[in-house]
Design a protein around this nucleic acid. Sequence first.
DNA 1: CTACGACCTGTAGCGGCTACAGGTGCAAGG
DNA 2: CCTTGCACCTGTAGCCGCTACAGGTCGTAG
Lengths: 130, 130
Amino acid sequence: MRDGLTIGAVARRGGVSVETVRYYERIGLLPPPPRSAGGHRLYGEEDARRLDFVRRGRALGFGLEEIRRLLRLEAGGCGEAQLLAREQLASLRRKMAELRRMERALAGAAAGCSASRAAGCPLLRTLSGG
Amino acid sequence: MRDGLTIGAVARRGGVSVETVRYYERIGLLPPPPRSAGGHRLYGEEDARRLDFVRRGRALGFGLEEIRRLLRLEAGGCGEAQLLAREQLASLRRKMAELRRMERALAGAAAGCSASRAAGCPLLRTLSGG
DNA sequence: CTACGACCTGTAGCGGCTACAGGTGCAAGG
DNA sequence: CCTTGCACCTGTAGCCGCTACAGGTCGTAG
């Protein structure tokens, strides 16, 4: 392509799939790029940066709506960004606590399970409310 | 109702919503119960126990397909149950590690954020690849 | 000029529910 | 007996963040 990145190139650079890039465009997270004569999308450096921003936000566990808000704050707006970050930290910690609870409960329930045991499986007994 | 629990009663006892009970029936996780003359579902004790089994499995983080397998193993089958438990423990730990990674990264990125700061927000800088 | 891959649009599916809309059953109070 | 009002019924669509097609078109290297 004369100038601009194809969707494949920008997706590879952003570490996401081509379908994901199109999806982000569909939901308005990435702006619709100009097209080649034949209708292929042509991205610029700014788009690649924006996609990177999204990917980084995802890696921090932000939802796409929150990333949309963060993108709007990109110039200044640290106060609101900080608020979003605090909420996101709290959400991550809630999820972690829930997983830890599950892990402890499951480890406890499965303790004493063995392949040779035919009946009275501790895990199945727990699930049955025993 | 003469004999049997209404869907509302069985849902309350199982700690899930009425819609969830109907959903479980639709996907074949709960058997279709007999109906009253007017078409209302009438559940027995066995159904309530089965619903409890499912809820307990969900509380341990199992997916509905895995719970379906566990239900089939209910009489004996400790060996396979143990295998499922081990896989589920590993899955919980993977998710926890991912959340921990996000938490550390986010806490680092948001450190130094403050409401008064107008530009150069550490979090936004991180997201922009700074 | 042909072959082949990368691209295009549109739609449906995943898991595990949740939320309607628009209708019917049931039980209790008057 | 009749009304009220809640609980129930079916069916469908939506949530999130993709992913996976089908069936076609474009771009480029040989």
